[in-house]
Simulated assay, not measured.
Amino acid sequence: MRLHPIINKEWIPTVGKALTHGLTLMSDLSKSAEEHWGETQNRHRRGIKKAVKMNVVTKIEP
Rank of each mutant, 00 (worst) to 15 (best):
N42H: 08
A18F: 01
K17M: 14
R2H: 15
G47S: 07
R2V: 14
K17S: 12
T40R: 07
L23N: 09
K50P: 02
G22R: 01
A18K: 09
K59F: 04
E10T: 06
D28F: 03
K53S: 15
V57T: 10
I6W: 01
M54H: 05
R2Y: 07
T58A: 06
I7D: 12
N42K: 13
W11T: 15
G16S: 11
N42A: 11
A33P: 04
R2P: 00
H21W: 04
E39C: 12
H36D: 00
E39T: 07
I6A: 14
H4Q: 12
S30Y: 01
N55G: 02
K59V: 06
K50T: 10
S27L: 08
T40V: 13
E35R: 06
K17D: 06
G16H: 05
L29R: 10
H4I: 02
S27G: 13
L23C: 07
K31C: 13
R45F: 01
W11F: 15
L3I: 15
R2F: 10
K49M: 12
N42D: 13
L3E: 03
G22M: 02
L25T: 08
I48G: 00
R2G: 15
P13H: 03
A51Q: 10
N42I: 11
P62R: 03
G47R: 07
V15N: 09
H21Q: 11
D28G: 08
T24D: 01
T24V: 12
M54R: 09
R45P: 03
E39L: 10
